[in-house]
């Protein structure tokens, strides 16, 4: 017995954030076309959200008071656009998970934990969401501003900027939230099943 040294099973498996970030960024750039489409969904939704906010600011700058019914209607539109955005991202992420079953299986065989897979997908969608909504918010603001150049002087630019930041935050948050179900699904797969799947 003395000569035997039983294997000590440890659990020092790690994927540092910067490495995960690098891999996620690579996944986006390599599938740029797909990423653009996913990003475009977020972009359009957020552009719409931003334009609603900006329109309100423009009306304020013009001194127009909104009626409650109008406010309600615009709120409803915003909610719908965000919902569409959310569903769109979930769908794209699900597809990108399905596409990568084999890769996920390989990752797991090499010793990746479930949480690495989740992290990778969440970082990826956070990046897509951030850039998509940044571009979307800028487009929304520009659109409203260019169609109402007369208010340039009186527009509350500080509020506009705050709204823009809020839109980016909302877009990023929505993207990450929408990616959680597909990421969980990817992570829960057994390595063997994942690799056996033919897509």
């Amino acid at each position: 017995m003395a000569t035997m040294s039983p294997t000590r099973v440890e659990r020092q498996i790690s994927l540092p954030f910067n490495q995960a970030f690098k891999i996620a960024l690579r996944n986006i750039t390599i599938r740029l076309g797909r990423a653009m489409i996913t990003g475009a969904g977020t972009m359009l939704g957020i552009a719409f959200l931003m334009s609603v906010f900006a329109s309100k600011l423009v009306l304020q700058a013009k001194g127009v008071q909104l009626e409650p019914a109008q406010i309600q209607k615009s709120n409803w539109l915003v909610a719908m656009s965000l919902l569409v955005c959310f569903v769109g991202i979930t769908n794209s992420m699900l597809m990108s998970v399905t596409e990568r079953y084999k890769e996920i299986g390989t990752f797991k065989c090499l010793g990746a934990l479930d949480k690495f897979i989740i992290n990778l997908f969440l970082i990826e969608s956070a990046l897509l969401g951030f850039f998509g909504s940044l571009v979307g918010a800028i487009i929304g603001l520009l659109f409203v501003w260019l169609t109402n150049l007369s208010v340039t002087g009186t527009l509350d630019w500080v509020s506009a900027l705050l709204n823009l930041l809020a839109c980016v935050a909302v877009g990023t948050f929505l993207s990450v939230a929408a990616a959680i179900p597909p990421a969980m699904r990817a992570a829960k797969m057994q390595a063997v099943d994942a690799m056996r799947t033919e897509v």
């Binding site: 090499l110 479930d114 390595a191």
Partner: peptide
């Protein structure tokens, strides 16, 4: 390697694979 794989939790299993 003398480890009963049925006893391992997912983290330890990942370590083993790695």
């Amino acid at each position: 390697d003398e480890v009963d794989i049925a006893q391992l939790d997912p983290g330890e299993l990942a370590w083993l694979r790695c």
